[in-house]
Design a protein around this nucleic acid. Sequence first.
DNA 1: TGTGGTAGTTACCAAAAAGTAAGTATATGA
DNA 2: TCATATACTTACTTTTTGGTAACTACCACA
Lengths: 123, 123
Amino acid sequence: MIKRKESSVNLENEKALAAECPFIFALSLMGKRWKPAILWKMTEGIYRFGEMKRAIPQISEKMLTQHLRELESDGLITRTVYHEMPLRVEYALTEFGTSLQPILKQLNTWGEKAQNIKNTMPK
Amino acid sequence: MIKRKESSVNLENEKALAAECPFIFALSLMGKRWKPAILWKMTEGIYRFGEMKRAIPQISEKMLTQHLRELESDGLITRTVYHEMPLRVEYALTEFGTSLQPILKQLNTWGEKAQNIKNTMPK
DNA sequence: TGTGGTAGTTACCAAAAAGTAAGTATATGA
DNA sequence: TCATATACTTACTTTTTGGTAACTACCACA
């Protein structure tokens, strides 16, 4: 679905880093653009596709689908389809996804500190 | 030095996310390509430009310079020039940069778990 | 005058990520 | 038969990131 060359220095570097450094591997799972926002929202509970779209208004449907699919295949969330009409699809954190929560909180706290530093020392 | 349009939906989205979510702001400071590797190495102590280059062989001089400059302007590391011959430039973590260490470790641990899950459940 | 060492800088190009907009599928109800 | 609702797909384009390779500046030493 996402077209990528099978080899390029760029990709090889990324792979090598993710393989040798678990931290970078972790970032590859949850550190892309809208993923933190999605994961953050989901700590509140189950979300439907449309609900998440409304919860993060700037995200495009394409990016939302793409990120949800990746999070699912990486084992962070589950996707459940209810064959009703209109269709209902629910997304929820897995246990593994939930285990990220305390780390997200810590990084969030650190990020707040960083924002303050930036604001008190402009330029 | 780094050319970026002053406005684009892409950039505006990134800014908005970083402003409202400290977690994403944190990622923008330390989550790019070689930065975790650089920060990780530096927890061992002071590094010279050339030492870091040899410590992370795949990194190009361009990316190393760029990341070091960004880490410096974001207050995570210091850059000290010694006007000797040959020139000596030393990079070291600031207190703020050091405060990231426990979080890096936690995410690292989580990443290891994720790697194991991936390896035990291929496909 | 030329070679070597440190620490970069620069221009150019390839690759990847993200955005846009229009289209798909399924079924209900007017 | 048309409009509505949900949940996507797809083709295409723009923007951003990363890599390559050649070049700069400073000075020491032979």
